[in-house]
Structures are given as structure tokens and as C-alpha cells.
């Protein structure tokens, strides 16, 4: 389990994480929602062990994230792969780097998402690029998968394909997938657990169907309401 305890992080005067206490439930697809600048990316980076907290702590299965690298697959919002690489080259790099690389999974997802691994990133459309980066992340058998804005800037068809690829890949109960996005619509039915952030704090938390049942509203409406309350 990934647990945040009194976690705070500031960038200059901006408090990206404001005393966050949060336990991400195991084995679920979790939607980390919130407006731009809410602290979603910082939360994910902290879980991946890529930012130093100012105070508090984050643990992954009881240890600091840096000691759990092999269990964490993190997809940053910005591409970090050299653009002149082919998908194949990137896959070889990943395979050499990560012990949990699953080549069968990689090839299946490539086929499912209609990608050719000889394609260079410079030749790829935004959608193809996003799909390729996702395939590379999901090809690891990591216990925790952290995806930062996997849908940003891509068309609706590619989004749908990515959603389906996520369902396809997800092995129930064994993987925890956290998807940070401000575009809720696409994955509203895909996420089982909701974490909503605003101004560095967690403002809504819970099981998606329970929230719909309790409020009689869509997740989007619940978020909007929480956001309005929060900004008053």
C-alpha cells in the first residue's frame, strides 16, 4: 500500500502538498482528479520517489519509494525518451533496465493498440506517441502503476483505445493503478476509487459507486461542487 503521512511539499511559495494523509487502496484503479495545479503530479512524483518532501513521509509497502523502485512504474506527463528513438529501441532500453519487463505483454499491447515497433517517435502522431509510452509503462509487471495525465492532448479515439488497453492489462487485485488527470469524463467508469485534490489537499475520497449512490450525482458534479466549496 502507498501511504502518505502528513506529507507537505512546497515549490517557493506554492504549497503543492499541504499536510496530506492518504492511503491508496490496494488492487484498485484509482482516479486522482483535480484542477490544474492542484498537486496531483507532485503527489504521484512523491509516490514514485522523485520529489523530496519538506515534511511528513510517503511509504510504499512500508519502505521509502526509493527502496521500492522495482514495484513502481511511473509515466511522467512529459516525454523523457529521446525523440529519434524507435519504440523498439525504447523497449530494449526498458528491458535492460527493469527486471520485471514482460515481453509477451509488451507485444500483445503493441498489437492491440495498432503500433509498429519500428516507428520513430519523431514520425509518430501525438496519439501514437501517448499509446507507445503507455505500452512501455504497462509492459512492466509492476505492482503500482502511476500514470500522470495519460490522455493529455490526444484525440477521442486514441483515448478510448488507451482506456480499453488499461482494462485489458489490469489484473484484478494484483495491481494498483493511479491515473492522475483533469479530464474525468473519459475514465469516469474505469476508476473504482476517487481521490480529488484541490490546492494541495485531498477534498473528496471514496468508492466511486458509493459516492454516486450517496450524492445521487455524477463524479464530475461532485468534483465541481467540492471545487466551488474549496475556492470560497
Amino acid at each position: 500500500m502507498i501511504i502518505f503521512e502528513k506529507a507537505s511539499k512546497s515549490f517557493g511559495r506554492t504549497l503543492a502538498l499541504n499536510n496530506v494523509n492518504l492511503a491508496l487502496p490496494e488492487g484498485k484503479i484509482i482516479g486522482l482528479f483535480g484542477p490544474n495545479g492542484a498537486g496531483k503530479s507532485t503527489l504521484l512524483k512523491a509516490a514514485a520517489g522523485l520529489v523530496r518532501l519538506n515534511s511528513g513521509q510517503v511509504t510504499v509497502d512500508g519502505k521509502i519509494p526509493q527502496q521500492r523502485r522495482s514495484k513502481l512504474a511511473y509515466l511522467p506527463e512529459q516525454n523523457t525518451l529521446p525523440p529519434n528513438w524507435t519504440i523498439k529501441r525504447a523497449a530494449e532500453f526498458y528491458r535492460a533496465f527493469f527486471d520485471d519487463w514482460d515481453n509477451e505483454r509488451y507485444e500483445k499491447q503493441l498489437e492491440f493498440l495498432n503500433l509498429k515497433d519500428g516507428m520513430r517517435f519523431t514520425r509518430a502522431s501525438r496519439g501514437q506517441w501517448a499509446k507507445a509510452r503507455l505500452v512501455l509503462t504497462l509492459a512492466r509487471q509492476a505492482r503500482y502503476i502511476l500514470l500522470d495525465e495519460p490522455f493529455s492532448g490526444i484525440d477521442i479515439l486514441a483515448r478510448e483505445e488507451i482506456s480499453k488497453a488499461l482494462v485489458r492489462d489490469y489484473s484484478e487485485g494484483q495491481q494498483t493503478i493511479v491515473i492522475a488527470t483533469h479530464e474525468i469524463d473519459e475514465i469516469e467508469n474505469l476508476v473504482e476509487h476517487i481521490v480529488f485534490m484541490d490546492n494541495g489537499r485531498i477534498t473528496v475520497l471514496g468508492d466511486a459507486d458509493e459516492l454516486r449512490h450517496q450524492e445521487g450525482k455524477s463524479i464530475v458534479s461532485i468534483m465541481k461542487e467540492a471545487f466551488r466549496h474549496g475556492s470560497k
Binding site: K28, I29, E160, S163, K164, V167, R168, Y170, E172, N189, L190, V191, E192, A208, D209
Partner: peptide, 17 residues
């Protein structure tokens, strides 16, 4: 369950429930 989840893009645990 798996095919239903994929086809309708619904969380597999929700389908299971």
C-alpha cells in the same frame, strides 16, 4: 466479466460486483 469490462470500458471490479 473481462469482456464486458473491456467492451463497456468499466472497471473490472465493478463488473465483478
Amino acid at each position: 466479466q473481462r469482456n464486458f469490462a473491456e467492451q463497456y470500458k468499466v472497471n473490472p471490479n465493478t463488473v465483478q460486483r
